[in-house]
Amino acid sequence: MSSEPRPDDKELEDFLAGRHPLGRAYREAAQHQGAPPELDADILAAARAEAGRPLPRRRPRWMQPLAFAATLTLGLVVLLQLRHQGGVGTPLEAPLRSQALQGPASERPIAPPLPAPPAPKSSPVPAPASRDESERSGAIPEAAVEQAAPPATMRSEPSSAASAPARTRESEAPEDSDARDSSAAEAVDANANANANANANANAGSGSGSGSGAALKGSVMAPPASPSSKAERAPEASSSSSQPAGVSPPAGQAERPAAMEGSAGPAVRKAPVSNPAPPEAQAMIEAMREHLETQNQDAALEVLRVFRRQYPHLSLPVDLQELEAPYPE
């Protein structure tokens, strides 16, 4: 294991260092051989021609990953925006969204705890103690509708999403009592405003049904409404607080008016703003019953057509729902 290089290694070292006689002999022999001068002209002409052309603008190396990242980010933002607006989101997002749309927590009045106090006996419609109870009874206070998470179907999501801008307008709209032309909505809004301004403990002395905990909650969740939102809420009010006995929505459809807000589209928004006149609706229902009893289905359908035109949100009693089945929408 001597450190002295072997003969071939020494020869290689000499060769690599340019000291080997073979290398010298080769260089001596080859130095006279060169490229023919006639080749130079073509190559140099091509090089000059190429040099005269402007260099194509090259993208920096970091451009491609940056573009990819920007595209990805933009896509995600658009997707999130669509989910936020278009109703691809989960049902659990709805209450959070409605709270977020009503402004910062510091600006919102403090809501009382959810369990509603017992309704006074003078109240025409007893306030349900909980959402389950209200669903069983079929009477849905607006506050409960707002507070309740939408059903876990994709169909319900657009409704909350579509109503979100309206609520934003509500929260931004100043209180305009002159604009309130709907008596039902007026009643709801008046209660809401009164309760919003009153102490949370003062609800026992309000003396009205909507002064209950649920209505108070409604005042928290539903700020003063704009005319458009009142148009949406008018049937709700009629179907909850002042709904006639025969027009009570069937179980399972308790949230239908609120849930239908988005899906019903413009037709719902064009619902009559002025007096919903539940007694008139009741009269129409009675008329339909009478026509059915007298086997005059055509007349009953005609009344139904008028009824539907005026009260698109109201559900028919169970005994009349078969009449609606063939009703042309």
């Binding site: 130079d40 190559i43 140099l44 090089a47 000059r48 040099a51 005269g52 402007p54 260099l55």
Partner: peptide
């Protein structure tokens, strides 16, 4: 330099 359009640089290289 040739990349920047200097044809003389290429000639030297060549």
């Amino acid at each position: 330099r040739y990349q920047r359009g200097d044809a003389a640089a290429f000639e030297t290289l060549y």
